[in-house]
Nucleic acid binder design. Structure first.
Lengths: 161, 161
DNA sequence: GTTCCGTGGTTCAAATTTGAACCACCCTGC
DNA sequence: GCAGGGTGGTTCAAATTTGAACCACGGAAC
């Protein structure tokens, strides 16, 4: 090896891509957050929790599984589920076969609230991202970001080693 | 008009794109944040502040302009610049022609710290995003997200009105 | 010169996030 | 049965973010 040579700086194309990524991420997040908060009284994390629970046959998920699915920390999830519990949208239930585990379960009120929030949310997602792009662009984006995400999910090996 | 008809839900392609967008955003952010914190002792917001200042001929920017450039709130910027000031990487300087304005200026230490952090940062950006994609994918991504970002920058008109 | 409104920044409290303890429980090996 | 190590969740304090309230100044109208 030869120590650290001159780093490979980003060229203009790459820089543009990087900043577009950051900017779009920030702006879209802000937009979605805003819409959900004012129209449905939910934060985006809270909304996503409800979605994940609703996607499940019995409307419940272990805290740990939920945290992994949402790419959040355990303590972060504990907090948000606590908030949703206060709102009566989610309840906690212990696991019969494993006393350590806790299931978050969607209440009827939670399912109803999600139903009310969903149309506005998808509309916002379309306005911010989906409907702004051509189908080809969207497919390309999904492909590229899917690759990026997949690569970061698994404990990555550097390409250079 | 006919009130709200059945909302246009996302089809599988669209849903995949949306989730890839969210997932990649979260994971890449985490990665970048992590790298900067451990290797340079800076948060990503702090690093970006230094970058913006260094990009300027005299290494200084008004607080408001800086806040706009970083897509952050005024109070958020006040806080982070305060942190950087504590670290001696940035200083505040009043504006001679407008007593309300405050300039954030990069100190020598700040410029040096940025210089030390940059190589590791670009390497992380390459590992997480740039080098993972083919040039074609990257171009497509920049194009798509550039469109998204541009559209959200300006106070948007809904496509349907 | 004096209102009056808009801009530039800061301050404040409240909400959220993070990561490091921490506790309780499961499981394996002895 | 019992010691260890690992997993599942919560708790805690510290850092950060957010938005509203606030203060001071600049600029235009009169």
């Amino acid at each position: 090896m030869d120590g650290m040579r001159e780093p490979r700086w980003l060229n203009d194309e790459e820089k543009h891509a990087w900043y577009a990524f950051l900017t779009a991420g920030a702006l879209v997040n802000r937009q979605i957050e805003q819409q959900l908060k004012t129209d449905a009284g939910l934060s985006h994390p809270q909304y996503e929790i409800l979605v994940r629970l609703a996607d499940t046959p019995d409307g419940s998920l272990r805290m740990t599984d939920l945290a992994n699915a949402l790419l959040t920390t355990k303590s972060g999830l504990t907090y948000q589920v606590g908030q949703l519990e206060k709102l009566g949208l989610v309840a906690r239930r212990g696991c019969p076969t494993d006393d350590r585990s806790v299931f978050a379960v969607l209440t009827d009120a939670g399912r109803e609230r999600l139903g009310g929030a969903a149309p506005g949310h998808v509309a916002a997602v379309r306005d911010a991202l989906v409907d702004v792009l051509t189908p080809a662009q969207l497919a390309c984006l999904a492909d590229a970001l899917g690759t990026v995400a997949r690569r970061l999910q698994s404990p990555g090996q550097s390409p250079g080693t």
